[in-house]
Amino acid sequence: MLNREIPSASRDAKLTVRLPRRWTSFFVSVFKNRISFYFLAPYLFFFTLFTIIPVAASIAMSFSYYNILEPPRWIGISNYKLLFLDDDVFLTALANTFKFAIVSGPIGYIMSFLLAWLISQIPQKYRFFYTVCFYTPAITSAIAMSIVWSYLFSGDRYGLINHFMMRIGLFREPWLWLQDVDTILPVLIIVQLWMSMGVGFLAFLAGLANVPRDMYEAGAIDGVRYRWQELWYITIPYVKPQLLFGAVLQVVTALQVFDISVQLVGMPSPLYAGHTVMTHLFDYAFIRFEMGYATAIAVILFGLMVGINRIIFNILGSKGG
């Protein structure tokens, strides 16, 4: 009696581990579509190898002291405490980056879309010319860009803007555009806006070209009379995927500003007026070789991008888009 075996049905019920319904349906779906996942496997492998693992390693390294020459040493949250409590330069760089992103991000985004929309309204044979004209600054090298803008904002009387302002009598003496702490950030914003017609601009053009023409005809029947009404009620709802893509790119570009700051005002800039989070990261990673501290900066920047992009997805990534 004591050695009586548990009935098989009862034993199976006790030993069976019930998976949540969500996971059960997931594994069933994977099994049914296993051929598709076989084709996805190479991408998933390399995405994990070159994206997920490096991000996870960076997060782990941000909790350590690592100077390349010695093995990483775990120090907990000391890097983050130092960043926000003792590193005044980082706080200045964070403030500069936010100011830069808040101004250049929305303005550049709206300007890219409006210019793409205006180009889409002109005859097809002229669109290529205007597209090349507006897209060229985005693919111009940082060195060539710095030469042009350094000449425009040169602090002597031979600088183009100073020469013009003195000639019409607005300035009595040259203005040090790239040395004055009050004008460094506005100049960087102007240069960024000039270079903002990048991949997002091309995505807007492609999306606008694919809006069905019969929708405009239907809108005209329903009472749409003006181009701005077409833009608001027909065009924008149809190009929501491109708007989302362009917004994400604009956020990433605005928060990762580096080249124009270093090329125009140097590193460090006067009183850190043009110092950004990326220049601070570059300083600690490739000049001081404090990789643990640099990865902590990178994690903060990554968190900012993810948070802002999450907000953008909630606004532009709705099911109705």
Rank of each mutant, 00 (worst) to 15 (best):
R4N: 13
R11Y: 12
D12Y: 14
A13L: 12
K14P: 05
K14D: 08
V17P: 06
R22Y: 07
T24M: 04
F26D: 06
F27K: 02
I35F: 14
L40C: 10
Y43K: 01
L44G: 02
L44R: 00
T48C: 03
T51V: 13
I52S: 03
A56H: 00
A57T: 00
M61F: 05
M61T: 15
F63A: 11
S64I: 02
N67I: 00
P71Y: 12
I75F: 04
N79W: 04
L85S: 15
L85I: 03
D86R: 13
L94I: 00
I102G: 06
I102Q: 07
I110G: 12
S112A: 14
S120W: 05
I122G: 09
I122H: 08
Q124I: 15
Y130D: 09
F134W: 12
P137V: 10
A138W: 11
T140N: 03
S141H: 06
M145W: 00
S150I: 11
L152H: 07
F153M: 05
R157F: 12
R157G: 10
H163I: 00
F164G: 06
F164H: 10
R167D: 13
G169Q: 08
G169P: 09
F171M: 05
P174W: 10
P174D: 08
Q179S: 15
V181S: 03
D182Y: 11
T183C: 00
I184Y: 01
I189D: 00
I190Y: 00
I190S: 03
A203F: 13
A203H: 02
L205N: 04
A206I: 11
L208D: 02
L208W: 03
N210V: 01
V211Y: 01
R213V: 14
E217A: 08
A220H: 13
I221H: 07
D222P: 13
G223E: 11
R225G: 06
R227N: 10
E230Q: 13
L231W: 02
T235H: 07
V239G: 10
P241M: 01
P241F: 05
P241V: 07
L244I: 01
L244S: 08
L249T: 05
Q250G: 12
V252A: 09
L255E: 02
L255P: 06
V257S: 11
S261P: 04
G266H: 09
P270K: 07
L271W: 09
A273G: 04
T276M: 09
T279C: 00
F282E: 09
D283R: 12
D283I: 06
F286M: 06
I287D: 09
R288E: 10
M291G: 07
A296C: 11
A296S: 13
A296F: 00
I300V: 15
L301H: 04
F302Q: 08
M305R: 03
M305Q: 14
N309L: 02
L316R: 03
G317D: 04
K319I: 08
G321M: 02
